[in-house]
Design a protein around this nucleic acid. Structure first.
Length: 577
RNA sequence: GCACCCAUAGCUCAGCUGGAUAGAGCGCUGCCCUCCGAAGGCAGAGGUCGAUGGUUCGAAUCCAUCUGGGUGCACCA
């Protein structure tokens, strides 16, 4: 349970009490009343804007409202003091026992402390990665993969029923190219000279696929026209690539619930059904698009196409769903795929795309809005570029030069945990610098290390406690946790449930990473003060009860750090080496 | 030309459905530690929040216009 919403409830009932006393007019809307941590700690533990928000509708001076509200709130034993400040802020200091109670709750609930019911069990589908099945995942995919996976975990923690999904683009021309490329490797495996022309994939990763194909079918396809092997090899190669991709994802600890095949939409009437659904709504018509203004493609000519009236749902121009030759455009199966998601009963859809697909957002939202009659929201999160560095020097990638960096390269070098955490130290729509050396650096400017180090220090305390023969199963006397530096840590811990809700509401898992860094900082600050003030150390010689209480604080920190790392998909390390 | 994203300290970036004197890390300055919890700690300097208007009791946050950067713009996915 979120302490801030607890206190907000208290404030609201105080306001209602004022109304029944006639100290405040009836019929006010309290929706904008907030209770938040003030930016400046000298303003107390929690601040409310109630008086200022209500001043106008109540036609009263905000300070008058604030004073009356303060009088009501001081009656609450949890609130130690209330003061009115500035234009009408209500600053509250909460009693120490309340913060001590937070620790008790953390120890009682464990990793569930902070679990929210924001989602109320609603079904949400998170689609991410969805890379073409034509090769291994590269760094660009890595960010989308980590972001999408952490977002899915976050939403799960916030009470949603989450489905992790990967859309396999196995229906377009690119898988034909893949098949031809594999055929070349297959010929090569038979000892033939081959040349990779433009429009084929020359990557080494197809060599074993060609060899394996030779093992499987022998020389059955040799010297045969494309028409006799294209379908079979395409099938075979796509499967091989998906195995590769699944393994790449697994190396980051990612496991999808659903792999959805684009190909499965063709020839099954599903695209037709989705387009028909749009047609029923009067959103499909035959027409000719205007040429794009300004930059006009050289080969542009007016063509009549089947168009989706996406402008009716917020898009800038209508979009073609069928080419002039009668084949579906790439947009058509995407519509059908999202229609399928809607039909599967999801209450909310999230697509994670690379930033280069930004131009695709509006039409996708238009499609989902149209197909669900505006009932199912689609949030599209774009992940920006990852710039690679090695020791501060930009690391140029080039497919030709062979300096093409794959997801596997990154994970093999820095490990899944550091990769994941670092990828989440930026907002998804901000570019990210990834330095292979700095990610592994053991210093304060590396948040991965700093957070892990906090957890490791707790483990160190626990090991020493065990060695000293302390009995940690006894209930700690938390009233001994009363020093300001200790209470500050408890206050930070109390913010955790609220932060989870905020991060889930905005679909922004990076907030978890930043919070963990803040919490670790608070914990390290307490640890460091133990250098000067021995009474702040976690282990107090000869005073077992005190040690047990202080260790309870350390364990609370560990519980929340591990819960947070769990959302990010980062394995906590036992000790730093 | 249009659409979307971005612009905050010297650098890299946070900033809560609009809240008080805008924060962190690095870098910089000063002090502390060289056996007892320092893979460091404490303190400080550093900002017209890209610009100009507007809404509001109150704007880095919302709206409009402009500037600068990124991405994308029929019959490729």
């Amino acid at each position: 349970m979120n302490l801030f919403s607890d206190i907000r409830t208290t404030v609201l009932s105080a306001l209602e009490a004022m109304q029944s006393e006639g100290a405040l007019p009836a019929g006010l809307d309290f929706a904008n009343v907030t209770v938040e941590p003030p930016r400046d700690a000298s303003h107390g533990d929690m601040a409310s804007n109630a008086a200022m928000v209500l001043a106008k509708p109540a036609a009263m001076n905000p300070r008058v409202i604030a004073e009356a509200l303060a009088a009501h709130l001081t009656a609450d034993p949890r609130i130690e003091s209330v003061e009115v400040a500035g234009p009408g802020f209500l600053n509250m200091r909460l009693s120490v026992t309340l913060w001590q109670g937070v620790l008790a709750k953390i120890l009682d609930q464990g990793a569930d402390f902070g679990r929210a019911d924001t989602g109320q069990g609603k079904k949400v589908n998170v689609e991410y990665v969805s890379a073409n099945p034509t090769g291994p995942l590269h760094v660009g995919h890595t960010r989308g993969a980590v972001f999408g996976d952490a977002l899915a975990s976050l939403l799960d923690y916030a009470g949603y029923a989450v489905t992790r999904e990967y859309y396999i683009n196995d229906g377009g021309a690119q898988v034909d190219v893949l098949a031809r490329s594999v055929y070349l490797r297959y010929q090569e495996a038979h000892g033939q000279e081959v040349a990779f022309e433009d429009g084929t994939y020359p990557g080494d990763y197809l060599i074993p696929v060609g060899k394996a194909l030779k093992e499987k079918v022998g020389d059955a396809y040799l010297g045969k026209p494309e028409s006799e092997w294209l379908l079979e090899i395409r099938e075979y190669a796509t499967e091989a690539m998906m195995d590769l991709i699944r393994a790449d994802l697994a190396s980051l600890g990612i496991k999808m619930d659903v792999f959805y095949s684009e190909k499965s939409l063709y020839g099954t009437g599903r695209i037709e059904a989705a387009i028909a659904a749009l047609k029923d709504k009067g959103l499909i018509y035959e027409g000719v698009l205007e040429p794009p203004k300004g930059k006009k493609p050289e080969d542009w000519e007016p063509r009549e196409q089947t168009l989706f009236k996406s402008t009716a749902h917020g898009d800038d121009v209508d979009r073609p769903v069928m080419k002039s030759d009668g084949a579906w455009t790439y947009f058509a199966p995407d519509i059908a795929y999202h229609y399928d998601k809607v039909m599967r009963g999801f209450d909310m859809l999230i697509d994670v795309f690379g930033a280069d697909h930004g131009g695709y957002v509006k039409r996708m939202k238009a499609a989902v809005s149209a197909l669900s009659d505006g009932k199912v929201p689609l949030d599209v999160k774009l992940t920006q570029l990852v710039k690679l560095y090695k020791n501060g020097e930009p690391f140029k990638m080039s497919k030709r030069a062979g300096t093409f960096v794959t997801l596997r390269d990154v994970v093999d070098q820095v490990g899944p945990g550091a990769t994941r955490f670092h990828m989440l130290t930026r907002k998804n729509d901000a570019p990210l610098d990834f330095d292979f050396d700095k990610v592994l650096e053991q210093s304060k400017d590396n948040p991965v290390f700093y957070v892990q180090y906090a957890n490791a220090r707790v483990n160190s305390v626990l090991r020493k406690a065990e060695a000293a023969g302390l009995d940690l199963s006894a209930a700690p006397d938390l009233s001994q946790i009363n020093h300001e530096a200790e209470i500050n840590v408890a206050k930070k811990l109390a913010e955790w449930p609220r932060l989870v809700e905020l991060a889930a509401r905005t679909n922004e898992p990076h907030r978890i990473a930043f919070y963990l860094f803040d919490l670790a900082s608070e914990f390290h600050a307490l640890w460091n003060r133990g250098n000067d003030l021995p009474e702040l150390r976690f282990l107090q010689d000869g005073e077992d009860a005190t040690s047990v209480a202080k260790i309870a604080l350390a364990r609370s920190v560990q519980v929340v750090i591990c819960a947070g790392l769990g959302i990010l998909g980062v394995e906590p390390v036992e000790e730093m080496r």
